[in-house]
Structures are given as C-alpha cells and as structure tokens.
Write a protein that binds this DNA or RNA. Structure first.
Length: 814
RNA sequence: GUAGGCGUUCCAGAGCGGUCAAAUGGGAUGGACUUAAGAUCCAUUGGCUUAGUGCCUUCGCAGGUUCGAAUCCUGCCGCCUACACCA
C-alpha cells in the first residue's frame, strides 16, 4: 500500500516537472476541450462525488491526449458566494483568507488523485482580475438593454438573507439552506434571459445532451403556442385570455381572472360585490404563492359578464386563487368539459359544463382534455381539433378578436444578491444624473475589505461608507454606489471562456484563442444544474455571439451527467454518517485504486453504490499488474494473444468513445487474465496504455520497469490493426477452454483418472484440435489423442473406453 | 397527470436476433498454503444426468414476428427520476 503512495508521488512529480499537461494553441492539431463543472472549494475538502466527477474527466483527458488531440483540461474555483461568506462569519476569518486555505486544500487533494489539469490556466472568481469581466459583461448587457432594475415581488430567502432567482427555488425552498422562500417587494437587477427563450429552446436540438436533461430545460422554458383572444365586456375594456385550445371555445362557459388582474378593481368598484371581493383578496394576500396554488380551488363571482367571441354568449366572470397573474394574461377562458381544473371549479360552483369535443369514453364524471371531433360547435362541428383550431383562429383574427401568441414559462433572471461576498454591480446612483453605469476604464469596482456582516441594512456593502459614497462619473457630484452583488451564477456562466485566455488584462478574452479552443467538447457534471448554471451559460454564450465576440452559440457540445455516489442505499451525507472521505481511500489503497474503482463499478451516468468489498477487488487487480514485469514472456501462443490484443483494442476504443468506461475496465480485466496465462510483451504494452487513463501511476511505473523510455503519459493509444486479428486462434482458445472444462467435469464426476484421453472430433475441426493436443496434455496431465470421426457412424456405449472408434464426436477416456 | 428512463442468474451490472445457462466484479461453497486468522492462488456457483461438446427450465408477466428471441413488436404489471393547478 505504501508502495502505491511512493509510486504515485514519483509520477506526479515527473508529470509536473515535464509539463506534460500544459496545452498550447497549435493550429495543426485538433483540439479537445474537456471540462468538469467549476467547483466551490468548501472547507471540508473533496468529497466522493467530486472524486467520481474528476476521475471521469481525467480518464477522458488522458485518453484524448493519447488519441493525438491537443487537450485543454483546466480547473478553477467558484470562490465567491454565500457559503464562503457564512463560513468566514462562523470562523471569524475574512473570506479572502478562508477561501485561500480551502483552495490550497482542494488543489492538494486533486494533485493527490493524479488529475492532469493544466494549472497554468487556473482561475478564481473572487479575484478582481476575474470579476472585473463580470462587471464588463453586466455593462454590455445593460448597453444592449438586456439588464434592468425593477422593483418587484421576488423570492426572498430569510435563511440566506437575500433574494434568489427562480432557478434557485426548489419546491418553494431555498436550494442552499432549505429555508422556506417568501415573496418580498424589493428593487432587483435582472438579466433579460427571456429575450433568448426561443434560441435557448431550438439550440437544444443541435447539442448532444441526455434526453432527460433536455426535457428539463424544455420544461423550464415552457414554450406553448396558442392564441390571445379578446372577450368583450359591457361598457368596459376588453379582457384578453391566452389559450392553446381555441377549438374548445364553444365549450367556454365562464371566465376566470387572477385576483391581481389590473382590470378587476375597475369591474367591482362601486358594486355590491366590493366588500366580498376585498375580503377574498385579504385572505389570499396572507398566503404565499406556493400555499395559494396548493390549496383547493376557490373563487368569487364578481357580478359581471363577458361575451364569448365565437358565439356571442354571455358568460360570468370569476376571480380565483388558481389563476396566476404571472403566466399568460392573468385571465383564462374556462372550458370545464375539457380541462381538469376548469371542471373541478365548475362542479364546485355549479357552472354549466358543455361538451364540444367527442370523447370515446362515455363517462361524464371527468373532463376530457384530449383532441377529437368537434360537436355542438356551430359551423365547426365535425372538424377535428387541429383543423378547427386553425379555422377558428383565422376567423377571430379576421374579426380582430385574436392574435397568435407564443408564451414562455421562463422569467427573467434575477441576479441581485444582498450579500457581501460577490461581484459588486458597477452602477452609481446620482441625484442629478440618475443611474450611471461605471465607465469601463474604472473597472474593476473592487469589493471593499471591511464591512459589517451582521448588519440589518439591506446589504453589508452599505456599511462601508468609503465604498458607497463616490463621485458621479458623469457630473462629478455626490453619488452612491449600488450595494447589491451579483449571484455567483454570473461568474460560472462564462468561466470556461476565460480558461482559454486566463491572464488577459485588456479584454475578457482573445477572440482567436476562443476560436481555437471553444466550444467545449465534453462537459461533465451533475444534473442539479440542469436549469440553473447550464441555462445561464447558454444564455451568456448566445449573448456573446450577438455581440460578435464568438461565432458559435452553444458552449457545451456534449454533456455527461455523472450519477450520485450512494452508500447504504442513500446519498452520502454528514447527517447520515455514511460519508467516505476520498483521502482516506487514497491513503489506504492509493489514488489509482480509487479512480479505477469509481469508474469500474457503474457506468458514469448511473448512481454509484459504494462498497468496501468491491474496492478491495479493484486493489487486488492493480496489485497484480505491478508484478507483471515478472511474467515469463514469450508464450508459444503468440498468435492467439496478439490477436486477442487487437480484439481488446477494438472493444476498449469503442467503449471509450461512448464513455462507457466501466466496460473498458471489464475488457481490460478480462484481457489481463489472458496476459497472465500467455505473457506477451506486445500485449502487456497495449494493455498498459489502455489502463493508463484509469490508473496512470501504476501504468507508468510498470511501463518504466518494462524498460520503455518514453513516458506513458506522452505515448499514444494503441492502434487497432485488423490484419493481426486471427479469428481461428481465438476460436481455438475458446474450444480448448471448453474442452478442458468438460474433461475435468467428467473426470470429477466419474472419479476416473485418465492415462489417455481420446478426442473424437468432426473432420473439419481435426486440424484445430491436433494443433492444441499437446497443450491439452500438459493441462490435463494425460496423453491426448485426436481422431476424426464421421458423425453418421453408430456409437456403441460399451466401446467408450476402448481405442475402438466410437462413431460420435466426443471425449473418451482410458 | 405529463415527460424521460428502467426491470437479466445470490448482489451489482454486461449482453440488445443464432457462437447464451448468459461477460466482469463482489458474495457463497470446496481445495491449496498457514499453528490459526488474514492475505494470496485454484475450482465450483439453475436443475437433471444414461456423462453425450446430452436434456429441461431460466433474462418482470402475457402474447406476437422469426427456422431461431434476454435481444425485435404489442399489451399488461412493477420501479425510478424530473416537472406539475402553465390555461
């Protein structure tokens, strides 16, 4: 075990000294950008999930290098953000100090794993030279009217004491601290991601991500195509509703508005409904959105009627808790016969239910929301839904009562955080000039060192007056800085660009460098970022393309979501006490064992169940390999083992290309047991190369002990040579194995000992068996004689043990 | 409810039309070594057997296509994951 540690240290040093992993632009070579998601360097160090993630990425990086690609494989730190701030408060240290320590720990652990990062490209997002480009991006977005400030009801996390983006709220709870998120009216900065809704959606078609992940993003963007239809109201302004189903318009028997709908007040004011209405609103205002929509449907008839534009029928108008102002127009046309929610509501308030779509099921207890032939629909009766939708739409558009409309669920991205440890938003407020962006030449707006964290003020930055009070860049008068900081998701939305040109102090990056390295060929990370980070990154990329800085609009061509690491059936967590520290594993079994184990047990995307027994198996395997230079090379079975080598090269390469790394290892284990039987330097050489992405240290060590001068990390992946495949040799081996096991079985069961074993085989196989007879003899410790027989001859069981020819292919003992 | 995915031998997990009683690892059993444990190595690991490169049963369940199905199709059952009053 200690030998593993020594070997690992030795090779880590040699790789470093030889700068094996630093990547330089070389226009003659094909590049491969390999990247794992930017980690937050927490105080607790690497966990097993990280280890799995990085083992995957590193194996791929090493493989691609061997395949001749110019591989860029960088690493950096998501060092801004709440956890660092909270940790710093808890420890009473400034975040700058604690994050520096954490980064050092992470880096040390990563190096102990033997990860082949190009550390020359390392970045930290809390570095002013990094975050000044966040600020620059912000100004560019502002310039393009894609950033704006708005006072609005937003998600407020009382635990984190800040606002959150919609993407940060999971099931009504804060994604970080699980506090219940409340709605609060605050001034907040937004990025207009909704401008890119359609591109964000269509771009999914040209990238290679899992269907699952794509559907998560599609869901989040939530595109639905339909119509906005005007309903007239006596003596009042028209009310528009959004619907995807104009074909059911004849079945619309009432209308429902969101209680906050701007026209509602006007409709009820001065009527006798008003007191009831106020009471209703009052009750609702006490509930947050989540409560409101999870409660039973509740509504109120407001005493007014609207006109259904398709048949001029008068229909009552309701307000109800389940209609949300934030989606569509905040008003719906209700078709109880063909919508579950409308049906429920109509039942409760005894509203008419009119069927307009034919339904195969005769049951009337349920609404039918599928499509079908129209009934009770005037001149449209008899048409099929899709056709009717089109025709009704055309009629209404002609009458100027409707327009085509596409709705998205996605909302603009709230980037404001009322916390300290983040990028200051480069905005100055001046009494005279109003809001003034900080001029580019004044960037970065540096985060002040001293603030009072425990402030009750809106943001800790407000407590530093020398930060807050500035001169207006435009008129020179007294002015104040914006004190919100940006969410760290801004930092991580573009960091991968910066790796291509990490030290550029003139611009965010050099276009030619990006032109060479980007986009990312393989991105690896967890699913938890499906609608946050991955969406924001795509948005920023599309924006940079719009600015003309890049000529592609999807940053991540291939995405691999590695599965979780579980233990005892559930996710590793401190509270459950089932955490495995990867460092302990490295100390006990070595980094190669950990890496190989993590890649062997499960395919990369499936959840991983940690088992102490399995890891020992892998350790055993690697230990054997360390001894392989002692094998007696020069097997007589050269043809077979060399043919097998080619087969294994072919299989391993295919599996690797599909990122089925567990299968590569399965092949390699199988391969190695054959090498042990028939030692061949050629086979071992290929084997070590193919093993090196998984267990790089041990492979290097054995490689060296075999007397090869070139470092394995600089060598190439074995080339598949079809001409060396010898199917016959492999088949022979297969039949020998089977014959041997059959004979052993017979000997065991009959309890016989055989001096001579007669093999009667069909003529076409005679040659094969004759060739291997001597080998069989040595394996079975008996003389083996092979004869050809004609299958059609009769067999006499009594002759079995005699030399006389039995007529059937088989094994006979003497 | 909607969308995606899955169901294989004791376990994890390959195989995705014939070479399949089904890779690989773990476990279990037996053997070698050892005073013993551990480690290591070898063998066995669906059943029956007249022992024959034999027969039968198995890849969620039920059918179908095919000369032939764990693999393809249809229906059913069960599990997972995500989003859910989105109009």
């Amino acid at each position: 075990m200690s030998s593993f540690a020594q070997i690992e240290k030795k090779w880590q040093k040699r790789w470093r000294d030889n700068k094996v992993f630093s990547a330089r632009i070389n226009s003659k070579r094909n590049k491969f950008y390999n990247l794992e998601m930017l980690p937050y360097p927490s105080g607790t160090g690497l966990h097993t999930g990280h280890a799995r993630n990085y083992s995957l990425g590193d194996a791929l990086a090493r493989y691609k290098r061997m395949r001749g690609f110019n591989v860029i494989y960088p690493m950096g730190w998501d060092s801004f953000g709440l956890p660092s701030e909270n940790e710093a408060i808890k420890r009473g240290v400034h975040p700058t100090i604690s994050i520096k320590q954490n980064i050092a720990t992470f880096k040390k652990q990563m190096n102990a794993m033997g990860l082949s990062y190009d550390w020359d490209r390392e970045i930290s997002t809390h570095n002013p030279e990094y975050y000044r480009w966040n600020q620059w991006l912000f100004l560019k977005l502002l310039e393009n009217k894609l950033a704006y400030k708005k006072k609005t009801s937003g998600n407020w996390c009382p635990g984190c004491n800040t606002t959150l983006a919609n993407e940060d709220v999971k099931d009504g709870l804060c994604w970080r601290c699980d506090s219940e998120v409340v709605q609060k009216d605050i001034d907040q900065w937004f990025f207009r991601i909704t401008k890119f809704s359609n591109q964000l959606l269509s771009g999914l078609n040209k990238i290679n991500w899992s269907n699952h992940l794509k559907s998560l993003q599609r869901n989040w963007i939530g595109k639905s195509e339909g119509y906005e239809i005007k309903f007239k109201i006596e003596n009042k302004q028209d009310i528009s509703v959004f619907t995807t189903r104009p074909d059911t318009l004849f079945g619309c028997t009432y209308m429902v508005l969101a209680p906050e709908h701007p026209l509602v007040k006007d409709l009820v004011s001065g009527t006798k409904i008003e007191p009831k209405f106020n009471k209703f609103i009052n009750k609702l205002s006490k509930q947050n959105e989540l409560e409101r929509i999870s409660k039973e449907k509740e509504g109120l008839f407001i005493g007014k009627y609207a006109i259904n534009p398709i048949n001029d029928k008068k229909i009552p108008i309701f307000i109800a808790n389940f209609v949300l102002m934030g989606y569509g127009t905040g008003a719906i046309m209700s078709v109880p016969a063909h919508d579950t929610r409308d049906y429920e509501f109509a039942k409760k308030y005894k509203l008419p239910i009119k069927q307009v779509i034919q339904n195969k099921n005769t049951s009337i207890d349920k609404s039918y929301s599928g499509e079908g032939k129209l009934i009770n629909s005037g001149k449209y009766t008899g048409l099929f839904s899709d056709n009717a939708r089109e025709k009704i739409g055309v009629e209404l558009i002609k009458k100027n009562l409707a327009k085509k409309k596409i709705n998205y669920k996605i909302r603009d991205w709230n980037i404001s955080r009322q916390r300290y440890w983040g990028t200051p938003i480069p905005i100055i407020y001046c009494n005279k000039c109003d809001m003034v962006p900080v001029p580019e030449k004044d960037l970065p707006v540096k985060l002040p060192k001293t603030v009072d964290y425990n402030t009750l003020a809106k943001s800790p930055l407000e407590t530093n007056s020398s930060f807050v009070n500035v001169k207006c860049p435009s008129c020179g008068g007294r002015a104040k800085r914006e004190t919100d900081t940006m969410t760290t998701f801004v930092d991580s939305a573009w960091y991968y660009f910066r790796y291509c040109d990490p030290n550029n102090n003139k611009s965010i990056f050099d276009k030619t460098k990006i032109g060479y390295w980007m986009p990312i060929n393989q991105y690896i990370g967890g699913t938890e970022h499906a609608v946050g980070h991955l969406l924001y990154s795509r948005f920023i990329t599309k924006f940079l393309k719009k600015l003309g800085y890049i000529n592609f609009d999807e940053p991540f061509l291939n995405l691999l979501n590695q599965g979780m690491v579980n233990r005892g059936g559930s996710k590793m967590s401190k509270s459950k006490g089932n955490v495995i520290d990867p460092l302990d594993t490295i100390n006990e079994y070595g980094a190669d064992t950990l890496r190989t184990y993590l890649l062997f047990i499960a395919s990369p995307s499936t959840p991983f169940e940690w088992s102490d027994k399995d890891i020992k198996g892998v350790h055993k395997f690697l230990n054997k390999i360390l001894d392989s230079p002692k094998l007696k090379f020069g097997s007589i079975k050269r043809k077979y083992i060399e043919s097998l080598t080619q087969t294994k090269i072919l299989n391993c390469t295919e599996h690797f290309e599909k990122l089925e790394l567990n299968k590569v290892l399965i092949e390699l284990m199988d391969f190695y047991s054959e090498i042990e039987k028939y030692p061949s330097k050629f086979a071992l050489n290929s084997f070590l190369r193919m093993l090196s992405p998984f267990a790089p240290h041990i492979s290097e060590e054995v490689w060296e002990r075999m007397g090869i001068r070139t470092m394995l990390a600089k060598s190439s992946w074995p080339k598949f040579d079809k001409s060396k495949i010898n199917k016959k040799a492999e088949q022979n081996e297969e039949s020998i194995r089977k014959t041997v096991s059959d004979i052993k079985q017979i000997l065991k069961i009959t309890g016989k000992r055989a001096k001579i074993i007669y093999l009667y085989v069909i003529p076409s196989e005679l040659k094969n068996y004759t060739l291997v007879s001597s080998e069989l003899s040595s394996k079975l410790n008996s003389e083996v004689r092979v004869f050809a027989v004609n299958d059609s001859t009769k067999i006499d069981p009594e002759n079995k043990s005699k030399k006389a020819k039995p007529g059937k292919p088989g094994i006979y003992l003497e």
